[in-house]
């Protein structure tokens, strides 16, 4: 699936600092691999209502060091299958950051947006321009665009389709 324009608009969820992959998907669910199972238990480590209330197209924001801890890719996958299209944080733990792009979810560093935006606000992310707009506040926030090859991951749906493309060449 190739996205034409890298623009995402959605309702924002907001969490604090050091949200670990154990919070996002606790280890007791680690033998689960099916999308609906991962989605149903998303954020089970700290917010049991999240999985029932999240909607397709929502945007996930958190403070410093989002994705701290375990390398488990099931955590960003759970967010993806629960409907999250973009994650934004003040900063990311490195494996989680790479995992997000590898499965086709943009992970954006934008501290000021996280600081000033409230849960439930509608935001629009323009990945190619490097701008996030908070419609409720009427404000724009710039972020450093990821390298080109990572944007290509997002356009193609992740590292595997990217690689398939490369191998087919």
């Amino acid at each position: 699936m190739v996205a034409d324009k890298l623009i995402y608009s959605g309702r924002l969820w907001k969490f604090g600092d050091n949200i670990s992959t154990d919070h996002i998907l606790p280890s007791r669910f680690m033998t689960e691999v099916e999308p609906h199972e991962l989605a149903a238990n998303c954020m089970a480590g700290c917010d049991p209502k999240f999985a029932a209330q999240v909607r397709f197209g929502d945007i996930f924001a958190a403070g410093e060091n989002l994705g701290y801890g375990s390398s488990r890719e099931q955590a960003p996958q759970a967010l993806k299958y629960a409907g999250i299209r973009v994650v934004i944080a003040k900063s990311f733990a490195r494996i989680f950051y790479r995992n997000c792009f590898n499965i086709g979810i943009p992970a954006l560093i934008c501290p000021q947006l996280v600081e000033e935006t409230s849960e439930g606000d509608r935001v629009e992310v323009d990945l190619e321009k490097g701008v996030i707009t908070n419609h409720a506040l009427g404000r724009n926030y710039e972020f450093t665009k990821p390298p080109e090859f990572m944007l290509e991951y997002i356009q193609l749906g992740g590292l595997i389709p990217y690689l398939e493309n490369q191998m087919g060449k």
Binding site: S71, R72, E73, I95, R98, N99, N102, I103, G158, L159, I160, L163, M167
Partner: peptide, 14 residues
């Protein structure tokens, strides 16, 4: 260093 599952699949291939 540690990496995720999808990245590991790419390492296995390349």
């Amino acid at each position: 260093t540690g990496i995720g599952s999808t990245e590991m699949a790419a390492v296995l291939a390349t």
